[in-house]
Design a protein around this nucleic acid. Structure first.
Lengths: 126, 126
DNA sequence: CTTGACCTTGACGTTGGTGTCACGGTTTAT
DNA sequence: ATAAACCGTGACACCAACGTCAAGGTCAAG
């Protein structure tokens, strides 16, 4: 199939697919006229990339997963490198959550300090 | 005082101060040679901006706070517009926290699905 | 034969808050 | 007088994942 069809089936833009290729995540053989030609396996690769991007992974993070699928594994996340990325990502997310919680507390503190009483009323006045 | 001194005292770069001015957050009179000349009040404005940026506010968010200080209030957060920003920001942060929690759960789910058993071991194998 | 839908590469725009030149004038100290 | 440190404006670089033209080649249908 050509890029337009793969894009439709995967729910992405052709531009995105060219970008993934440029980043070395996917590849395509070329037909005589220069058009990219994809197989069914590529749909799986793109789907994997998409589901990873959807949960906050970067394209770089997705690399080991794609490599894992290409290596013939039925799951992109079953290779050691992918597992490492999973762990790192979970740690990163936990970090961000902690940061946000701390930030929330700090904003709330600044708020009450700057305008005591405002917090409880719906339209605060100084 | 000139831009270099204000920058040092506020712990920012002169570049940042020029940017704040360009964004309409601070202003400076010019001495005969064209140099920006600041007063003590400007240090307070910049400090306010910094403490807001530090907790994830944008420069745009900081605008009402600066206006509030300029209007003579002793706290940048005591004006109604600032209070509105505080509320909005708290809501945004809460949203981000919820998003991150959901994302964390989803990543963990993908992880266990892709590689059941990997989660518990330190060096997972497929 | 021409419209129109598809494909190609290349390159700039987006977002925020600066960093980092370039190029030139001013001031201060020696 | 001259070097060092300061100031000015203007403009490109950054990060990520594309969107959106530009300018053109390809191909099937009518």
């Amino acid at each position: 199939m050509r890029i337009g069809e793969l894009a439709r089936r995967a729910g992405v833009s052709p531009r995105a697919l060219r970008y993934y290729e440029q980043q070395g995540l996917i590849s395509a053989r070329r037909s005589a006229n220069g058009y990219r030609e994809y197989g069914e396996a590529d749909l799986r690769l793109v789907s994997e990339i998409r589901s990873l991007l959807a949960v906050g992974f970067t394209l770089d993070d997705a690399r080991p997963f794609v490599a894992c699928l290409r290596a013939g594994h039925d799951s992109g996340g079953s290779c050691p490198e992918s597992v490492a990325v999973y762990r790192r990502k979970l740690a990163e997310i936990d970090d961000e959550i902690r940061t946000l919680l701390a930030r929330r507390a700090e904003v709330a503190a600044q708020f009450t300090t700057a305008c005591p009483g405002c917090v409880l009323r719906k339209a605060g006045e100084s």
